[in-house]
Design a binder for these strands. Structure first.
Length: 542
DNA sequence: CGCATAATAT
DNA sequence: AATATTATGC
């Protein structure tokens, strides 16, 4: 296994850039035709190919060049030595990943192969598709070895692991590889066993992407340049292109929404951006808008204009980002289960991390629910839909006004070291079915470290839970104070609530950095206009 | 490169 | 079954 890590370096070393390229494959098949074909195909994948028509010969090769191959592909039916035998030897002696192939997919046979440790079973005719991904077996295998040794180098593989989410990641399947014996399922039967390796755009990955884009400049950024800048070896230009497409779309939508929203925020020129003539960078626009987020702030100009200027001039810190895929399922259901003082902002916790990318996001259009969130009340849910929430629109946004008492209470509070409190809640609302279980998470961000609460529930008690959470929050403003902020359905039917203390507009400054670099925004509320803002904005509907 | 749309995933 | 995310072909 020591050797193996070296091997890894072997094929990826010069420029780890083109990782799978140079993968050293040994192909064993007694049929010379197939041998040729496979060789050709594999080479097309820019693998380094060695062929052998005899199992014994292959085995010798393997023994001689102990560290000379990364993976073996072998036919099952061979005159001199059964493919399974070969498989066995390899497994015993060098522990390389072996892919079996044959013309028939007879289950028992496939099973046998797999039971004997084959990492895959391909049916002839074999197509490029299937070969292109074989490198994953190599990585996978090494990953496990690395992990077993506690090897931290393994980190470098993490991202690769994210490939092909389902197939590679699902716990069950993964287990199959841990004990390569026990497997038997259909995954391997299907000739194209390793389905397409779909790239999963994790938060990290996306951040790299965004960084690259920004570095290049939004309008100058094309897939190739981005790819280069990102420096992620296994990513292809197409991957980036696709993501870029989505990204642009996203920004565009966002931009549109914000224009609309802006017009509701007392923005003066609802139509400003429609008469665009100057080329506009959606990032800028959105960032502006978002940062101002209907805070009603002076920044009218800042909001809707074409000025890239203002974005850079304003102290705006927000960066628009796009929702990316959650690595895994969401949130557990024990209150406080995700709480961590050492990680109050959920930077570490995967779940939270993935949620974070939503937090910053604006609503998504696909939304078409007739779902009506309920307004929380003392005794639970009221029957009133959340005021201001118009869910018939693709996007909706809601601003709730705190009760007068609360407002007064708050504003009279002298203990100014008033904190900035931002609460963002995310819940998955299967909108058509308000009864479905949803997960809901609330993150509390404050100057003081306030933990994160997570639970899962049905949409029926979402609001009650929210209320509870708020009430039990250190520094909460009281029962009915929970409601200042915005609530809108966000990407993926998630919804999102943001609350802040209007006492202190000045959010986290340098402090324990609240959220996630690229995903977060800082809201700025001019102190004096606050009251007005709160009042004016209350209950606006988008 | 970028769009439209096919293929997959959840 | 419907929707979201990626891959692909032009």
């Amino acid at each position: 296994m020591m050797e193996n890590s070296k091997t890894t370096a072997g094929f990826s070393s010069p420029r780890s850039d083109n990782f799978p390229a140079g993968l050293r494959v040994l192909v064993v098949d007694d049929d010379p035709t197939w041998l040729k074909i496979l060789e050709k195909m594999l080479k097309k994948c820019s693998y380094e190919v060695t062929t052998s028509g005899l199992a014994r010969e292959a085995l010798n090769l393997l023994r001689e060049r102990k560290d000379g191959f990364d993976i073996v592909i072998s036919d099952v039916n061979m005159p001199d030595m059964d493919g399974f035998k070969l498989l066995e030897h390899v497994g015993l002696e060098m522990d390389l990943p072996v892919i079996m192939m044959s013309v028939d997919g007879e289950t028992s046979r496939v099973m046998k192969g797999v039971q004997h440790g084959a990492c895959d079973y391909l049916l002839k005719p074999i197509r490029m598709k299937e070969l292109r991904n074989i490198w994953q077996h190599v990585l996978r295998k090494r990953m496990h070895e690395a992990r077993d040794i506690g090897n931290h180098e393994m980190d470098q593989f993490d991202e690769v692991w994210m490939l092909n989410g389902t197939e590679l990641l699902s716990g069950k399947k993964r287990k199959d590889f841990d004990n390569e014996k026990e497997t038997s399922d259909s995954r391997c039967v299907d000739s194209s066993s390793m389905k397409k390796a779909r790239v999963v755009w994790t938060v990290d990955l996306h951040q790299k992407f965004v960084k690259a884009v920004n570095q290049i400049g939004f309008d100058k950024a094309g897939p190739k340049k981005i790819l280069d800048l990102m420096g992620v070896p296994w990513l292809t230009r197409e991957n980036v292109a696709s993501h870029l497409q989505k990204y642009r779309l996203y920004l565009t939508r966002l931009q549109k929404e914000n224009e609309v929203k802006a017009s509701f925020c007392g923005m003066k020129h609802p139509n400003v951006s429609s008469k665009e003539n100057s080329p506009q960078n959606p990032v800028d626009v959105c960032t502006d808008v978002i940062n101002d987020k209907c805070s009603g702030v002076s920044g009218d100009e800042a909001i809707v204009q074409n000025g890239k200027a203002n974005i850079y001039e304003s102290k705006v810190k927000g960066v628009v980002s796009m929702p990316v895929t959650e690595p895994r399922s969401v949130v557990g259901d024990n209150i406080g289960s995700k709480t961590s003082l050492s990680d109050p902002f959920g930077l570490i916790n995967t779940d939270v991390k993935s949620l974070n990318c939503f937090t910053g996001e604006a609503p998504q259009p696909q939304y078409k629910q007739d779902f009506k969130p309920r307004f929380p009340s003392e005794n639970g849910l009221s029957n009133q839909p959340l005021p201001g929430m118009d869910c018939t629109q693709p996007t909706c946004s809601l601003n709730l006004v705190p009760s007068h008492e609360v407002r007064d209470r708050v504003s009279s509070k002298e203990n100014k070291p008033s904190f900035f409190k931002s609460i963002s809640g995310l819940g998955k609302l299967s909108a058509l079915e308000a009864i479905q279980p949803v997960s809901h998470q609330i993150n509390f961000h404050a100057l003081e470290q306030i933990p994160t609460t997570t639970w899962s529930m049905t949409s029926q008690n979402v609001d009650q839970n929210l209320v509870n959470a708020l009430q039990s929050t250190p520094g909460n403003l009281g029962e009915d104070a929970s409601i200042q902020g915005e609530c809108f359905p966000a990407y993926n039917g998630l919804w999102n609530i943001q609350q802040f203390d209007y006492n202190d507009p000045q959010p986290i400054s340098g402090g324990p950095t609240c959220l996630y670099d690229t995903l977060r925004f800082d809201y700025e509320y001019p102190n004096d206009s606050l009251e007005g803002v709160v009042l004016d904005q209350g209950l606006f509907i988008v």
